[in-house]
């Protein structure tokens, strides 16, 4: 139960951070449905998450296509 709460808390925190770069972001947001999400925005999201001590490994940055990808990478 506690683990699910923690996971939800981290998920919310990540989406909140992504919103500092993509203000409309939700768990469903992706590069496909968000034209303003370009590769620079991806890097800015990585930078913003770094400030929260959520490190996206270099090898996985190129895989990011959606908020769901980021959540999955952060959870792994």
């Amino acid at each position: 139960m506690k683990e699910t709460e923690d996971a939800n808390g981290i998920k919310d925190k990540i989406i909140e951070t992504i919103r500092t770069i993509l203000p409309e972001a939700t768990a469903e947001t992706s590069m496909r449905n968000t034209p303003s999400w370009d590769s620079l925005k991806t890097l800015q999201i990585v930078m913003a998450l770094d400030e929260d001590d959520i490190a996206i490994p270099f090898e996985r940055i190129a895989d990011i296509r959606s908020v769901a990808d980021i959540l999955a990478i952060a959870a792994s």
């Binding site: 890097l43 990585v46 930078m47 913003a48 400030e51 490994p57 270099f58």
Partner: peptide
């Protein structure tokens, strides 16, 4: 600085740095 975004996109600075 931020090494990840530097190697990925030649952006040298971290968000804090920028």
């Amino acid at each position: 600085y931020n090494n990840r975004v530097w190697y990925m996109g030649s952006l040298p600075f971290s968000q804090n740095g920028e």
